[in-house]
């Protein structure tokens, strides 16, 4: 089974994140980035499926030069090859444009039996790209999988909701997005780190994918961020001096905030 895992290079949540003042897009130049943690679950699930059977894992990303790090991390974890789509015109693309580029890249890869994605990116957090991508590729989409099994030509997932857990099946080829409950992503082993350098990584531009630059980027985006305001620093908490009624006042506070 051949699997394509779509991954995103995102700003490290541990460091100071911000927006580009000129166009209100996420600042990707001046912050440390990494493979989105939520995408590590998709990489791990792909590796487990291939290790249990056969086939190969291709990791696909779109992003600037530094996004090669996200591909490298997935290759270190054990993916077989990488595809990095990079083109200055892509900067500022919204979810529809992102899904367009991913879809064309997957077609150029030669399709896949299974396309895996994380449940959301840790920066944009929209969770819509998997659905858009499935639509563009004409694949059944089964999203938010917390369990995944493949049997012959059928993929079965469990989706956990507030009220119930659903078991959903789809025929392959299909697209599945996975949650952070599905597995525990491995750390790259030292052998994996050394082997990653020798694995093939393709670099494609928009032209390689036959996409016109007017279809992507900030100019083609359906929505625009008009303004960005930094969230004010947190207010200092309330200090309740205990004058014999501390317990009651604590309970009142918790009740007023609907904690109890």
């Amino acid at each position: 089974m051949n699997i394509v895992v779509c991954v995103k290079y995102v700003p490290d949540a541990q460091s100071e994140r911000g927006f580009d003042a000129s166009d209100n897009t996420t600042d990707r130049e001046n912050v440390d980035g990494l493979l989105s943690e939520l995408d590590e679950y998709a990489v791990e699930e792909a590796l487990k499926l291939v290790e249990a059977g056969e086939g190969e894992v291709t990791v696909l990303t779109i992003g600037p030069e530094q996004a090669a790090d996200a591909v490298k991390k997935a290759l270190q974890m054990g993916a077989d090859k990488g595809v990095h789509v990079s083109d200055a015109a892509i900067s500022g693309s919204d979810a529809p444009a992102t899904s367009l580029v991913l879809a064309e890249a997957i077609r150029k890869i030669g399709g896949a039996d299974l396309v895996l994605t994380g449940m959301a990116s840790t920066d944009g957090s929209m969770s819509v790209v998997p659905a858009m991508l499935a639509e563009r590729l004409g694949l059944p989409q089964v999203t938010f999988a917390s369990e995944l099994t493949v049997d012959g030509d059928t993929v079965t997932i469990r989706r956990d909701g507030d009220a119930a857990s659903e078991t959903i099946t789809a025929s392959l080829p299909a697209l599945v997005s996975v949650t952070d409950q599905i597995n525990e992503p491995r750390y790259p082993s030292f052998k994996g780190i050394m082997a990653a350098k020798k694995k093939p990584v393709e670099r494609w531009s928009l032209a390689d994918l036959g996409i016109d630059s007017s279809q992507v980027g900030l100019g083609a985006a359906w929505t625009k961020v008009e303004d960005v305001t930094k969230r004010p620093p947190r207010q200092q908490g309330t200090i309740v001096p205990d004058e014999g009624d501390g317990g009651a006042r604590l309970a009142e506070f918790l009740a007023s905030q609907k904690f109890i």
Partner: peptide, 13 residues
């Protein structure tokens, strides 16, 4: 870069 990646992995683990 390999040594750095290994160092960072050990640190994370």
């Amino acid at each position: 870069s390999d040594a750095k990646d290994m160092r960072d992995t050990v640190r994370a683990v």
